[in-house]
Design a protein around this nucleic acid. Structure first.
Lengths: 356, 356
DNA sequence: CCACTCTTTGTGAACGTGCACACCGGCACT
DNA sequence: AGTGCCGGTGTGCACGTTCACAAAGAGTGG
């Protein structure tokens, strides 16, 4: 591991400060102005492409900017406008596939709008670390927060801190909105559940995620409703923690009774652990037990057997979050985003009709 | 999906601006000063805990800060000090486990030092998108860059742009340093290879990563050296792209000849694809073919069969990067970081002696 | 008691940008 | 010709912080 500075070929041998070094201050708006023979304000106008500026002036200024390699100073701008053009992302489990790809999409979308993204991970997801994460974001003067985390607790903490900050989550909350759970996640869960029912399964378990995650709640809700609608007797879902490890142990536990022929897992990782447990018992997927996941992480197609799962368009979700956050005041207050992202069922080889 | 503003319970019905609203400017250093009965400079000194300040004064100022919920304005500070206290992370494949967890570690370490982390993803990893990513980082006035990407190209681009910016990579480059490849990655690869050789395998393939990733190069180098040292005839490594998908197709291809009994894959995802291909052919892992991965992603323990792999301490790597970057001028120029992170071999069930 | 130092505090000027306002010239309308 | 307006440009200040410098008070040594 090494540190490099770009140009290492300088001829200096002495470690004294090279004569007349005095790191030559980056060019400012005024330097550009002087060289272009205009006032700094004109340069500023070019920068913010103000309408009334003569084309010729504009191009002259732009030319000088290129020549000087001018870069607007974000700090100065933030200082005077008192707008940071920064949005914060609050996560937990940020290195897992779902959150990670959402972050990526958020970042891409934000950059496109000239915004900066700052992330803060609340490992452990307890109130304390959530508060710490929020504080970090606040220190960066974020203008809004995207929440990819146990939202209930985040909301509570946010309220506790009495912040008047716009925030947005990957799903509508079901709390502030009186259980107006977002359709998409639920639809996905229903899709998965229906698939199992249509294959002929009746003993179906649901391995849910932590219930203070809205996604988890919505998926569970979808499962329960679909089971209800189709008059299939339902057993209580098991509450997991998203990890393969948990899926494995839950599987071991479940298989001691084995009063089921299918499991719908709230994400792909837990499904993987589940299949591991099933294999460990000498059973086969899908012959003995069918498994459905959720998310369609890139690896899911190569699990053994390849996993039937629900594909989530994380990127699209991320993009919408940003859109909503950035021009949220242009939307009528309280309306849901038009056209939810609809997840699709990807049928692979981990599901089959129950074996007689 | 919904946008919320923290306090929604305000009594206003009209959407007119509430009387005397004028968003009450966040408290500044001067507000604190006034209330504490000192000068703004004294407050500043408390902030930067300057040595010569009376304890009593200090605590009084701190008290007022707490009372006012004062937060230092980062932009103002950056403006005057012309230091952004920001470091950039340049990635590609950022949502994959390895990069993602490194980023997380980097961020944690950076925050601890009062630094901000900005990420930029060069999707596609071509020169153009790398340049774009670097530009984005530059716009944030980053003070240094951590590279988690095809480093060769990043270095070239950096050089092309003639930037005098400290940067650090997860591994020393092998280019600038005349092939002083970092030991750790190589050691890991040797560990994996030796494990296979010791089990009795002789026909061993290596599925490598893209060769402009230093990690990939180092792992391949480790494989080749170990094979050489142990006098095992070597076949040319296959160059992959880190994805399970590629591993699968490479596996299908390889199995048409089947002149091997073991494969060492440069990461876990490709190993997963490989095992998928092997299963597809009706073969068994490890009975017919042994597979070793690299990284030990959390899912690896639950692959079928559970994957023998090399554990990487991404978090530690991230932490070191930051340490190196932030106080890099305190280290003697050009020395490697003391005590590389040594990866360990995790033996699970995907490896066994060759079947006769 | 003076000269000096050291600690603790204050004063004023930057930093680079955007905003409010003023200014100038030309055109259209009266 | 005067009045008003509009496109295009310039002037000065403000944003919140740190830095360089100075000043006031306390202590110390001769």
């Amino acid at each position: 591991m090494n540190v490099h500075t770009g140009t290492d070929a300088s001829g200096y041998v002495t470690s004294e400060t090279p004569p007349e070094a005095k790191r030559p201050r980056a060019p400012s708006i005024r330097d550009v102005a002087k060289l272009a023979g205009v006032s700094h304000q004109t340069v500023s106008r070019v920068l913010n492409n103000h309408p009334s500026i003569r084309d010729e002036t504009k191009s002259r200024v732009l030319a000088v900017m290129g020549e000087l390699q001018y870069r607007p100073n974000r700090a100065a701008r933030a200082l005077v406008t008192s707008r940071s053009r920064t949005i914060g992302v609050l996560t937990s489990h940020r290195s897992e596939y779902g959150p990670a790809s959402s972050i990526q999409a958020i970042e891409e979308a934000a950059v496109l709008q000239g915004y900066l993204v700052v992330t803060a991970n609340a490992e452990g997801a307890d109130s304390h670390s959530i508060a710490r994460a929020i504080t970090h974001l606040l220190d960066q003067a974020v203008e809004g927060i995207v929440v990819i985390a146990p939202q209930v607790r985040v909301f509570d903490t946010l309220a506790e801190m009495q912040l008047d900050l716009p925030f947005v989550t990957l799903q509508s909350t079901g709390r502030l909105n009186d259980h107006a759970l977002s359709v998409d996640q639920m639809t996905g869960a229903r899709l998965a559940t229906r698939h199992l029912i249509e294959l002929g399964h009746r003993g179906i378990y649901h391995l849910a995620g932590p219930q203070d995650w809205i996604e988890a709640e919505a998926r569970m809700e979808g499962f329960l409703r679909e089971m209800g609608d189709q008059d299939v007797p339902t057993t209580a879902p098991i509450l997991g923690d998203w990890t393969a490890e948990f899926g494995y142990h839950a599987g071991r536990e479940l298989l001691r009774v084995r009063d089921f022929t299918a499991i719908f897992s709230s994400n792909d990782q837990m499904a993987l652990g589940l299949m591991h447990a099933i294999h460990d018992e000498g059973l086969d997927v899908p012959r003995d037990i069918s498994v459905v996941g959720f998310d369609d992480i890139p690896e899911a197609a190569h699990f053994w057997p390849p996993l039937t799962t629900v594909r989530q368009d994380f990127a699209e979700l991320g993009r919408r979050c940003v859109a909503l956050l950035i021009d949220h005041d242009e939307l009528p207050e309280g309306t849901d985003a038009p056209g939810s992202v609809i997840p699709t069922l990807v049928v692979r080889s981990s599901t089959a009709p129950p074996s007689a």
